[in-house]
């Protein structure tokens, strides 16, 4: 990996907390290695700010390998930035040019209020999961043998593709309606495709959709932006499957 170094200008959203107004501020940053990840570039900026005795930029991050779903930056007008199939932490500075100006904003959605700078509160997703994103089984150690219920490979594979969702919220941030239906569709599909999840599929989809609406997420109008920006390539087929599940549930509900 032969590193190159670039100089960039950053326009970053700064907001003290959820009750104050924010604004874009401009920072210059030199000698950024093209092998650095986007978050490592922000580390470098923060080191510079700390040395100038200024407040560093707050941003969410944890695993830095694309699996925890906490990094959530809107870069140059796109969730997780210009590259495809990546989270912000997997975006590398080689994607940018020397001298480029880069805009960095938090997720924009009413259901994800800003906590500080680039950090948003995504606990709405947790509440949707809590409403039904599970199979009701206790940890008794007395469940049935995992091989007692054969699962067709095609179903297991599709369930796995839906389960790859990391709940980052890029789908919501990218959607002009602020819809969370790719996220909810992925969760509903994962369980609806597996025999162990089918038993309570009807109640699950009704509960999760109800919670999704209560949280203030918008509806899907099939623009497909979510699928394009999803770092895990979750297909909007899952939204269609959720809609089928929902219709089935609503007409058969007792």
């Amino acid at each position: 990996m032969a590193s190159k170094f670039i100089n960039i200008t950053l326009k970053i959203w700064r907001q003290k907390n959820g009750t104050t107004k924010g604004a874009l501020e401009t920072y210059g940053l030199n000698n950024v290695s093209t092998d650095s990840s986007f978050l490592e570039m922000l580390d470098q900026l923060n080191e510079q700010l700390i040395n100038e005795r200024k407040n560093p930029v707050a941003f969410d991050h944890d695993c830095r390998e694309g699996i925890c779903g906490s990094c959530s930056l809107y870069i140059n007008g796109r969730a997780h930035g210009p590259d495809r199939g990546v989270t912000t932490c997997q975006l590398h500075m080689r994607t940018f040019k020397d001298g480029e100006t880069i805009y960095v904003e938090p997720w924009r959605s009413r259901a994800f209020p800003v906590i500080k700078d680039l950090v948003v509160d995504r606990s709405a997703f947790d509440r949707i999961q809590q409403a039904g994103g599970f199979v009701s089984v206790n940890t008794s150690g007395r469940t049935i043998d995992a091989n007692a219920t054969p699962i067709p490979k095609a179903d297991a594979d599709k369930a796995f593709e839906a389960a790859a969702c990391i709940g980052c919220g890029a789908c919501v941030a990218s959607c002009k309606n602020g819809s969370a239906m790719l996220f909810v569709g992925a969760k509903v599909s994962q369980y609806a495709l597996l025999p162990q999840g089918k038993v309570e599929a009807q109640q699950r989809v009704l509960n999760m959709v109800r919670q999704m609406d209560e949280e203030g997420f918008g509806n899907c109008t099939n623009t497909g932006a979510c699928e394009v920006e999803c770092p895990k390539g979750i297909s909007i087929e899952n939204i269609a499957r959720m809609n089928r599940e929902y219709l089935k549930a609503i007409v058969t509900e007792e």
Binding site: T143, A146, P150, I151, Q196
Partner: peptide, 25 residues
């Protein structure tokens, strides 16, 4: 004693482990 239980438990929870074409893990 418990490793088999763990797999059973996780499968019951809906963890999508890889399957053979015959449907078994």
């Amino acid at each position: 004693e418990v490793s088999g239980n763990i797999i059973d438990q996780c499968v019951a929870q809906g963890v999508p482990f890889a399957r053979e074409y015959g449907g078994l893990l």
